[in-house]
């Protein structure tokens, strides 16, 4: 009884938003609300759908791919199936030494997603750590960290990655390290800015008053409230990483042939651009579609996460 009157008097009289106290699991409620805002952006939903498709293709590549991506299986430079001379068992045709392009693209999805995942994990973890320290501690440590980040940002990112790979030697692992390094200043800046804003809020002071130390304040109190923009940035970095890796692959600095990485495939097919345009077209399309899909998801996330953060 007292419970009901307390709820009515409080939630009813003073509430900005409709005074329905949601029943059930609060986490489910948060998710439902997230999906409501995300799904209002139709492009984002489409992007998410395409992205999930790419993930599924990458996961089940050996089951889906009709041929071995590394071994020539048919005639050289066979055009797509619906062209003249096309062969229905090589749906998108074959490349310059007769490997099935569709199968190579399907396996290439694995590389692209792997690169994206590793690069984002690497740059996010390093970026957040540095950003938290810079924003929370301030002082000379902040100055040192931020000036180093400024230097990294001052060099064109592809050029920097290229130079790093040149030093470390061309390989997929080195490419990932190099790209992670060039992307990571964005996370440092974003985290630092968010920490600076959150640090002054009363709930942080309140946590201090009850005795929380600096590490706890940084990681447990402040960090979860900075995640919104970081998630958006991480999504966009994911597509950036794929793009940069493809560019490095195209320049011969990334994954080495015969790896069916999309950028490397483009590089190998460069000379056939007029005689057999499909060899260049499909890897390029694959990159385009994947990157576009991820960017659309990123936009949707921004829409969904921003108002939520402002309201609470």
């Amino acid at each position: 009884m007292s419970h009901i009157s307390a709820q009515e008097s409080e939630a009813g009289v003073g509430a900005d938003i409709p005074s329905r106290i949601p029943a059930g699991n609060p986490r489910a409620q948060v998710l439902r609300e997230f999906w409501y805002y995300f799904s209002r952006n139709k492009g984002a939903v489409l992007g998410l759908f395409v992205f999930l498709l790419v993930v599924l293709v990458a996961l089940f590549a050996p089951l889906i791919a009709p041929h071995n991506p590394l071994v020539p299986a048919g005639a050289i430079q066979l055009p797509p199936a619906w062209w003249e001379r096309g062969n229905p068992s090589f749906l998108l045709g074959t490349d310059d030494i007769g490997r099935d392009i569709l199968s190579r693209l399907i396996f290439g999805a694995r590389y692209s997603l792997f690169i994206g995942l590793v690069v984002v994990t690497l740059s996010v973890s390093v970026g957040i750590t540095l950003g938290l320290i810079a924003g929370y501690v301030r002082g000379w440590l902040d100055i040192v960290i931020m000036r180093v980040m400024d230097v990294i940002l001052a060099v064109p990112s592809l050029l920097l990655a290229l130079a790093l790979v040149a030093i470390l030697g061309p390989s997929l692992v080195n490419v990932m390290i190099a790209i992670a390094l060039t992307l990571q200043p964005h996370f440092v800046r974003l985290t630092r800015a968010a920490v600076l804003a959150e640090k002054e809020r009363d709930y942080v002071t309140a946590a201090r008053v009850v005795g929380a130390g600096p590490l706890r304040l940084m990681v447990v109190t402040i960090l979860p409230n900075c995640l919104g923009p970081l998630i958006v940035q991480a999504t966009l970095s994911f597509s950036n990483a794929i793009l940069d890796a493809a560019a490095l692959g195209f320049l011969g600095m990334g994954a080495q042939p015969p790896t069916p990485e999309w950028g490397t495939m483009l590089a190998g097919a460069r000379e056939f651009i007029s005689s057999a345009p499909w060899i260049v077209t499909y890897p390029g399309l694959a990159i385009l579609i994947t990157v576009l899909a991820i960017n659309l998801v990123g936009d949707g996330l921004r829409d969904a996460l921003d108002p939520k953060l402002k309201r609470s």
Binding site: R201, D202, Y203, T205, A206, V210, T221, P224, N225, S312
Partner: peptide, 14 residues
């Protein structure tokens, strides 16, 4: 201990 003015800012949203 202290109670702050703005109840919307003094509780950690997360």
């Amino acid at each position: 201990q202290i109670v702050f003015q703005n109840p919307y800012g003094s509780l950690n949203p997360r």
